[in-house]
Design a protein around this nucleic acid. Sequence first.
DNA 1: AACGGATCAAATGTCAAACAATTAATGTCT
DNA 2: AGACATTAATTGTTTGACATTTGATCCGTT
Lengths: 247, 247
Amino acid sequence: MQKYTLAGEGELPVRIAEAIRDAIVGGRLIVDERLPSEQELAEQFGVSRPTVREALKRLAAQSLIRTQRGATGGAFVNRISYDEAAEQQITTSTLLLSMNAVDFETACEARYALERACVPFAAERRGADHLAAMRAEIHRQGQPGLSDEGFCASDVAFHRALVDAAGNPILSYQLAGAVEAMQPLMNMITFPARSRERIVTLHGAIADAVEAGRAEPAETALAELARYTVELAENVRQSRRERQKRG
Amino acid sequence: MQKYTLAGEGELPVRIAEAIRDAIVGGRLIVDERLPSEQELAEQFGVSRPTVREALKRLAAQSLIRTQRGATGGAFVNRISYDEAAEQQITTSTLLLSMNAVDFETACEARYALERACVPFAAERRGADHLAAMRAEIHRQGQPGLSDEGFCASDVAFHRALVDAAGNPILSYQLAGAVEAMQPLMNMITFPARSRERIVTLHGAIADAVEAGRAEPAETALAELARYTVELAENVRQSRRERQKRG
DNA sequence: AACGGATCAAATGTCAAACAATTAATGTCT
DNA sequence: AGACATTAATTGTTTGACATTTGATCCGTT
């Protein structure tokens, strides 16, 4: 049976990778099925083994297959997990943000808007574990002596808990990329004690609202948090400009 | 100057790819900068050229670099575009959904929730072009003789226009993955004339609300659309079960 | 002097053949 | 029957070579 058909034009490894990928998404190769050995694939496609290898490596880079050495080794169709998918999305999003001069306001708006989408479900389905995680992060954020980066990391953890509370793995996966990718941008902000206090208060309001099963006040607090974060970033930018003008 | 440091353990190409990727995200390699030739890289890392090639191909598969043949060719750091990033996210999301038995309801909930996040901005900033695109798709959806797949495609186009109307490229990019990845699932639904009529009506309500700059009715219509879509899928599943029992 | 085309050189793309490393199955000895 | 060495299959890696592409250079013509 002909499982793969080489089509189009361009570099061989790319076309081979596409052929195999199509076989996977088209269901002709099912999860955990073993692909032919590199040697056999090379013969089937009429190319050399290094060429096949490059194709397989492309697929491995996208987590579509995994390879195993040894007697019963080979390439296997990989069931991509939420974690793997999220991981990939985070690297892609991070690169996209860092290389395209996305202004902080746009990224921030996107992030909090997406989070807002989770709130109604979080308020409806929140479990004790997620609430506890949120409270724990809030407590950490109030600790004096916490570094700015530590504060940022805790902020991310808080928002991940909020998103996970919605109990929708697809939402969690999609949001992970948006939230995590923002972290490098957030790390440029300094959080003096007064700002932290304000943020912790808002986080508390969100946790309270979610615990009470009320979406609306949580959405309001989230919107305020978005506004305040943008304001903080604006301050940092302004003071940096002034320092540059002087020095 | 030492730009790359090989760390950790495991397969050489993976470690080399990581070293180069870290150099890119760490800013030691800037956009459009040319990497050393494969030969030079091989010498620097103390490995053979095919090994370096595999590493480069991994990076190329993630759109981190692009390669050019010829005299002035080589590998260049790639500025990843929104389209490329979205493309990758779509394939990842599609695979995730198809391989993890995600139930339609969960995926649908996620999709419409994320779309809802865009609505306030769309209502605020909608441009004539986006509104026109939405109207055009609504008109197409009303045409008799349109295939189910054509209807689905138009549905996707409508929602993309809605998302783009929010005028936030990050949101558009994030949503593209969620909306497009749903299409294979949506394609399993059949859309009889009566269902289409209902959907077109809701689409019209969304377009009207956005045009009027009112977010709330658009969100309501979107929620109703989500509910109705899940209902349609449920019907398909039920009739399929009955057919199976009989035949 | 400016334009056009042939040549060249550098780089990636591809191939071939081999050896190393790993791993599970097989077979053998106790 | 169980422990241990052997073996075979497969991927990982190296070496060396040739093909292809493409910009740059040189040279002759106008």
